[in-house]
Amino acid sequence: MTGKGGVGKTTIAAALGLVAARAGKRTIVAEVARRGDVASAFDRAGAEPFEEIELAPGLFHISIDPQDALEEYLRDQLPRGPIADILARSRVFGLLAAATPGMRELLTVGKLWELAQFERRTPGADAYDLVVVDAPATGHGVAVLTAPRTFAAAAGSGPVARQGKKIDATLSDPEQTAVIAVAKAEELAVTETGELRASLRERMGLGIERVVANALDPDRFDDEEATALQAHAARPAVARALAGHRRALRQRAQLARLADLCEQEPARIALHPGGPLLEQLADELAPQLGLP
């Protein structure tokens, strides 16, 4: 899941996780370089980084930090633990890893890939049916997806290049990986979604599986009703209702633009004035995704 900053991506990712878990899929929602927002959406304090915690039956959460991913990767790759530990903590190594083009993104996406394996590399860990990735905002989200490919191309040989190719094969396979774009019905968010689609297609050969338009104001009045209300616009309550109507009209136009740019009908999630409850969001989302 990706989308412009501030569109409610994290909340929708958590809701999607809940939808999948309800459908009987063992699901994990993975946050990338965050501070435990998904966990807090479930009113749970942030767990230890890199720990897979169960938020609800069948629904897990993990927060992925590249540094942790590096340490885990080295422990996994190098035979003796202490050397890996020393390396991971080495300042020089950290700097080199940071300076290696695409390394941070590769490590992050490598962990995501590991989570999605039916045979987990993490000792004692169980397999997941679905990994929901609460990816970084649009531009950087694509960078994370393309990291393995870029890296494999740049590196040419070596274990990481081989692994990069393997990970890329998973990510660019529409049978295994789907991108969901979250947007608000606002000009900039819609424009960015269109750009995301073009960039995904060009760089990964992937389409957008589903667009989710989030936090839509209620669209209550038809043209006739709006005209009738104009006569009473001097009353504050009516003036406020008309302002809401104008907002709904602007959103209607942006929704049409979104549908046009992405060549699909967006799933629609209403604005929840009291703050959305995840269960409520999951109820709205599920039927629009064709899920129970």
């Binding site: 190098l78 080495s90 020089v92 080199l96 890893a97 300076a99 290696t100 740049a154 590196a155 070596g158």
Partner: peptide, 22 residues
Amino acid sequence: RGTAVVFSILKRLTGVDLMDDI
């Protein structure tokens, strides 16, 4: 010797020889 090891491991893992660039 330790830092030399760091370099060689990084190169072995990533296949990217950053020495020149760096």
